[in-house]
Design a protein around this nucleic acid. Structure first.
Lengths: 151, 151
DNA sequence: CTAAAAAATGAATAAGAATACATTTAATGT
DNA sequence: ACATTAAATGTATTCTTATTCATTTTTTAG
């Protein structure tokens, strides 16, 4: 396993077990474990892992988003989408079984003004356009998700 | 409606419709609408609304967490929890119908080392302690959630 | 195995957010 | 209506994070 991958995995564990409230705090913890890294790199790692920041009564707090975003997940999304179709009023995405909710959430997070909302079942996601004229754009956006990374 | 409440509601709408990537950016948008506010206040507003920050390929991005945290929601949680009970191995929370998943998620987000995990059904949440000895602590934490605000 | 290209990283810095302190505004009880 | 208390807010500052630019490391193609 590459050094980077090892670090990313360790970061996930730490975020699940400790309250991390700054990049610097994590630099120190990792340092004590022999993983030497700078704040700049953690900033990039957080982006890659889809770490989100919330604000608690004790200040900021970094957590893993159980509802996947981030570059790492974006790559998986492509594999999970099987097909995209549409009619005059909406776009329908077919996914791996049990993955529709996850895909629907991912699409929601894109926060496109062309999308009114989504509904996820077990293996089917309905994407409701904010106007029917956006359907072609939405379809091509989803197709891009299947290959490149969107988001 | 108080000025503050009006502002908070407008912020929610804006976060749902535009890509906000900094406090200052939102200060400007609100200003153009005649809602005058400073960055400091938005910092507090975001905490209150449970706004989270994600990192996208276009930089930071502020969004409303559909999976509620934040002070505003913390107050609702109390109403939604009907009772707390426990046996030797776990804690059971009874909730309003359909609210168990939300409560379970809220408890997860507390990220307590005393809690291994939660399972939410329709109106029942199981809280699995990381050790049985923590059950009293967990129970009192939940009871506090029913009155004060925890989180 | 080597050259070329891509990815990862650090140092320094610019950009952004949180907070201490002071002040104003709103809410509450009498 | 007034006094008292609590909530909200702004200013200025400190603290934190994102990014630019340069460098090193890793990967890929030949």
């Amino acid at each position: 396993m590459s050094a980077k991958l090892k670090r990313l995995n360790r970061i996930k564990e730490i975020l699940n077990n400790k309250n991390i409230s700054s990049h610097e705090g994590l630099v120190k913890i990792l340092g004590e474990e022999g993983i030497q890294v700078t704040q700049a790199t953690l900033s990039r790692d957080f982006a890659e892992l889809g770490v989100i920041r919330t604000i608690t009564e004790h200040g900021p707090r970094y957590i893993l988003d159980s509802h996947e975003s981030g570059k790492q997940i974006a790559k998986l999304i492509g594999f999970e989408i099987l097909s995209v179709e549409h009619n005059e009023s909406m776009v329908l995405i077919r996914t791996l079984s049990g993955r529709a909710q996850g895909i629907a959430h991912f699409v929601d997070r894109l926060n496109s003004p062309e999308i009114l909302g989504t509904v996820g079942g077990d293996d089917t996601v309905l994407v409701i356009p904010s106007s029917q004229k956006y359907i072609p754009n939405i379809v091509s956006m989803v197709k891009k998700m299947m290959t490149e990374q969107v988001g």
